Simulated assay, not measured.
Amino acid sequence: MTTTADTTARHQVEHTASTSASASAGYAVVAEVTRWPLFFDPCLHAEVLESDGPSERIRLWALVGGEARSWTSRRRFDRGLHRIDFRQEQSTPPLAWMGGYWRFEPDTEGTRMVLGHEWASATDSAEAEEWIGQALDRNSTAEIAAVRDWAERSDAWGLDELVFDFTDTVEIAAPAAVVYDFLNRADLWPQRLPHVARLDLTTTPASGTTAGADVQTMEMDTRAGDGTVHTTRSVRLCFEGRRIVYKQTAPPRPLLGHSGEWVLEPHDGGVTVTARHHVALDPDALASWFGEDVTPGAARTRVREILGGNSRRTLEQARAHAERPAGPSAGGEAEGEEGVA
Rank of each mutant, 00 (worst) to 15 (best):
N139M: 15
P252Y: 10
L315M: 05
N310V: 10
R192V: 02
P266N: 07
G158Q: 08
C43T: 15
C238N: 09
E118G: 03
G297S: 13
K247F: 02
R276P: 08
N139A: 15
A21V: 01
A173R: 00
S154K: 04
T8G: 11
P254D: 03
P254W: 03
V279T: 03
G110A: 03
R83T: 09
G80V: 01
T4E: 14
V340G: 02
V178T: 10
G270N: 06
G53A: 08
E219T: 15
G116I: 07
R312M: 15
S234F: 09
F40P: 00
E130K: 13
P252C: 03
E143G: 11
T232G: 10
P328N: 13
E109H: 14
E105P: 00
F239Y: 13
S18D: 14
D165H: 13
A128P: 06
P254H: 08
S24D: 11
R312P: 02
S70K: 06
G241L: 04
R242G: 05
L49N: 11
S22N: 05
D41Q: 14
A28H: 07
D284A: 15
A31I: 04
N310Q: 15
A285T: 06
D6I: 09
T228W: 02
R185F: 12
T141G: 13
W157L: 03
A206S: 09
A68K: 06
T217H: 12
Q248Y: 06
L199V: 11
L188C: 13
W157N: 06
V48R: 08
P37A: 00
S73Q: 04
V48H: 03
V215D: 04
T123Y: 12
S140Y: 05
T228S: 15
S24R: 11
R69L: 08
A176I: 03
I58D: 03
V114D: 12
F86W: 05
L307W: 01
H230E: 10
G110S: 02
S22F: 00
T2F: 14
S207I: 04
H45I: 05
E240A: 15
E316W: 03
F39Q: 10
A122Q: 06
T228E: 08
D200C: 09
W131K: 12
E118M: 02
S329V: 12
